[in-house]
Design a protein around this nucleic acid. Sequence first.
DNA 1: GCATAATGTTGACGTCGCCAACATACGAGG
DNA 2: CCTCGTATGTTGGCGACGTCAACATTATGC
Lengths: 192, 192
Amino acid sequence: MSVSTPSQSQSYHHGELKPALLTAAAELLGEGGAQAISLREVARRAGVSHNAPYRHFPDRDSLLAALAAEGFVELAGRMAGTAEGLAALGQCYVHFALEQPGRFALMFGATLDKARYPELQQAAQALHQRLAQAVHAAAPERDPLVATLAAWSLVHGLAHLLQDRQLGERMGAGLSAEELSARVTALFVEGL
Amino acid sequence: MSVSTPSQSQSYHHGELKPALLTAAAELLGEGGAQAISLREVARRAGVSHNAPYRHFPDRDSLLAALAAEGFVELAGRMAGTAEGLAALGQCYVHFALEQPGRFALMFGATLDKARYPELQQAAQALHQRLAQAVHAAAPERDPLVATLAAWSLVHGLAHLLQDRQLGERMGAGLSAEELSARVTALFVEGL
DNA sequence: GCATAATGTTGACGTCGCCAACATACGAGG
DNA sequence: CCTCGTATGTTGGCGACGTCAACATTATGC
């Protein structure tokens, strides 16, 4: 897992270090969240010295930003390939957040200074446009700006609350996260 | 600022160290977010040695949990004293998040292991009950569980998105965060 | 084929969380 | 009033981390 091809394992230059670093970082992200990502451990898992990552990322936050950007691309891709229904889009959003909680937290958390990484804001814009399009199709008479923000807020908050289990076990009594998500989004779409 | 009363400033025992530590930590939280909080800097600002905090908090996360708990108490207090309307409650929630983004992120972020600090889940339950009560008053015929989760999700996601400015400057064109918040919550309440 | 840039390594510095050992001050029981 | 246990604060240290500087090795363009 440390190296892709044995033939390269003993060469001075790794050859595919940047993607290898991202893979290792994604592993750590899945295992223990963003806090578990250290440049030194990432380097260790990629089989290089503790300073090699600096040839590809100026600092730790840039690595995290790259991971977040990957997430945005992935999520946007899924949402682009989802049925037109607003409810289906919401389900897709929530499902992604529950499937990759660490990635989701990284993408929307306050950890990253978004001003430093304009690519992130740009990626988020893609999500917004996809949502706006679906909202307009579902409720053309609504103010698109307000309605889209409402829809996004709903699914975003839903994803957040569901994965934090902040509502206590009792609240979800008998209902899985997916079921709750379906019911809540349905209620909202009906309200539109 | 380091010490409350000059008479105590040179005494071996601080006397009010725990609240002083929390105050210093809250300062750092406001300045640079949770990541800016280090036990050593907190101790420095409180005018004690780098290990003094360990007499009051077993580890760094416990300090953060105490800060989060403070936030829940504060927010619950505000929501308890807010007019019965569901929209007003939502405004209150969003306003708190925008006023104290660091605290809000700490309260709901994935940084803290909620299982270790049951007080946090308990505090969140108080918020939930307050919301459920207002939701039931506004829409008694709805499934209270689903409707409350929807309402909470909406204001939570709204707060998150507004403070992250993730939607880009263009989206809020001409509308302040407070105005957007009012419109979005109004749309939701109407939909109920 | 060689200069030069790109990529990876070694070593170091300061900060951090946390542990262990020690010092000081407070408060209850004589 | 004195003493002794306990609560509270200090000093020193360890390993891990992010980052910088200097150096080594490989790839690339003339």
